[in-house]
């Protein structure tokens, strides 16, 4: 899938090697993944990890209410590239977007390029039936990010 109009792209530079950057990104995901309802939907004490199982690796969030699979790892190239399915809680079981993270050596550090894409692949179960009414579609995407931002604002403004 190439980068299109529907791709969100964020770039950062870290003063560590690509190998270390990959290791921190994956093995230590719970230590840097931000906390709070905008970033963790499994509760304040939820834990994220890349877990190995019989089918390969997956990113999960383990909270009070159980385990939520954010997505399965499609490509795992330490020091180079990570390709991950990315699901939000309000997605239907067969819906997913994808997140690709590239780790590119640059000088004494690493340029980290993160792309979140595949939004256009989210579609109603029965497109012919729902057409453009958008009701089921809006329920499905929910626009999650809108929900998250609302939750975030409530959280931020409600803090003592």
């Amino acid at each position: 899938m190439s980068a299109t109009a529907e791709t969100a792209r964020v770039i950062t530079f870290v003063q560590v090697s690509p190998h270390d950057a990959f290791e921190v990104f994956t093995d230590e995901v719970d230590l840097w993944w931000r906390r709070g309802p905008r970033f963790r939907s499994g509760g304040p004490d939820s834990e994220l990890c890349f877990e190995q199982d019989a089918q390969g690796r997956r990113l999960i969030e383990r909270g009070k209410e159980g385990v939520f699979e954010i997505g399965r790892v499609q490509v795992w190239e330490p020091g180079k590239r990570l390709l991950l399915e990315y699901r939000l809680r309000n997605f239907a079981p067969n819906e997913r977007t994808e997140v690709e993270v590239r780790f590119e050596e640059q000088g004494k550090g690493t340029r980290v390029v993160l792309e979140h894409r595949g939004w256009e692949a989210l579609r109603p179960e029965h497109p012919a039936r729902h057409g453009l009414s958008g009701e089921s579609f809006s329920g499905m995407i929910g626009l999650h990010w809108g929900d998250l931002l609302t939750a975030y604002r409530q959280y931020a403004s409600g803090r003592p």
Binding site: F13, V14, V24, F25, W32, W33, V112, L114
Partner: peptide, 8 residues
């Protein structure tokens, strides 16, 4: 990613 960079 800002948080990731700080931690890394």
């Amino acid at each position: 990613l800002e948080s990731f960079k700080r931690h890394a």
